[in-house]
Amino acid sequence: MKPLLLLPMLLTASATFAQTKPAVETEAVQQTIRRFFDGMRRGDSAAVRATLAPGAVFHTLAAKNGQTQLRPENPSDFVKAVGTPHKEVWDERITFDKVLIDANLASVWTPYEFYLGSTFSHCGYNSFQLVKLADGWRIAHIIDTRRKEKCK
């Protein structure tokens, strides 16, 4: 093969590989988050727990008396609550706005609307930090905003 023909083929192949790998990783990151919310909808605490990295941290931003507060939430308490029978399905409907990945770190931004059964409860944005461990992508940190209006 002529060297002049080989160079464009190699460049095309490497560009294709570079595009494919991030797409595969992006899908894997999104799938971890989907499994988290699917488990929540089913009330399956084991499924939710399986998406979390050891030492995962949860926070929410809340307004109290016009002041923003950063409130920690205990992931173990959340997982337990998911598995405790409740009347209504906890249905958090998300879309993927941004997924950023560098090596074994991913940052994901998802607008959401939360429903108790079919009744709207609140909305906001989630920010997920995921890490890629030996067994795949796991959620290391979730922080969210919550409000009743001005969704999306």
Rank of each mutant, 00 (worst) to 15 (best):
R146K: 13
R138P: 03
D144E: 12
Y125F: 13
S121K: 13
E149N: 14
H141L: 06
L133S: 05
Q129I: 15
R138H: 11
D135I: 02
N126M: 05
T145K: 08
S121P: 06
L116H: 08
C151Q: 10
Q129C: 11
A140W: 08
H141F: 09
I139L: 05
T145M: 12
V131K: 00
A134I: 04
D144R: 07
H141P: 02
H141S: 12
F120R: 05
A140S: 14
G117I: 10
W137S: 00
Q129M: 14
I143A: 10
I139N: 01
H122Y: 01
K150A: 15
D135G: 01
T119Y: 02
K132W: 03
W137T: 01
E113H: 10
F114M: 02
C151W: 09
E113R: 08
E149D: 15
A140D: 10
S121A: 14
Q129V: 15
G136L: 00
W137D: 01
G124P: 10
F128Y: 07
G117K: 11
R147C: 14
L133V: 05
F120I: 08
S121Q: 12
R146V: 14
H141D: 11
N126T: 03
C151G: 11
G117S: 05
G117Y: 03
F114A: 07
K132Y: 00
I142Y: 03
R147Q: 15
W137P: 00
S121E: 10
W137Q: 00
R147K: 15
F128V: 02
S127Q: 11
H141A: 10
H122L: 00
Y112I: 07
G136T: 01
T145S: 15
C123F: 02
F128N: 01
C123N: 03
N126V: 05
Y115W: 06
Y112V: 04
K150H: 13
H122C: 00
G124T: 10
G124L: 07
C123T: 05
G136R: 03
A140N: 15
N126R: 06
C123P: 08
C123M: 09
H141Q: 14
E149F: 14
E149W: 13
R138A: 11
A134Q: 05
V131G: 08
E149I: 13
E113P: 04
T119I: 12
E149M: 12
Y115F: 15
E113I: 02
L116N: 11
L130E: 04
L133K: 01
G117Q: 08
K148L: 12
F120V: 09
D144S: 12
R138M: 08
Y125L: 13
G136N: 00
Y112T: 03
E113Q: 13
W137A: 01
S127E: 11
H141M: 08
K150N: 12
R147S: 15
L116R: 11
D144C: 07
K148M: 08
E113F: 06
W137N: 02
T119S: 07
R146I: 15
Y125K: 09
S127K: 05
I139W: 02
I143H: 06
F120P: 13
E113N: 13
H141G: 09
G117L: 09
F120D: 14
C151E: 08
N126I: 09
A140E: 13
R147W: 05
F120E: 10
Y115C: 09
I142D: 07
S121D: 12
G124A: 09
L116Y: 10
I139C: 03
R147L: 15
Y115T: 04
T145I: 09
S118F: 01
K132I: 04
D135F: 00
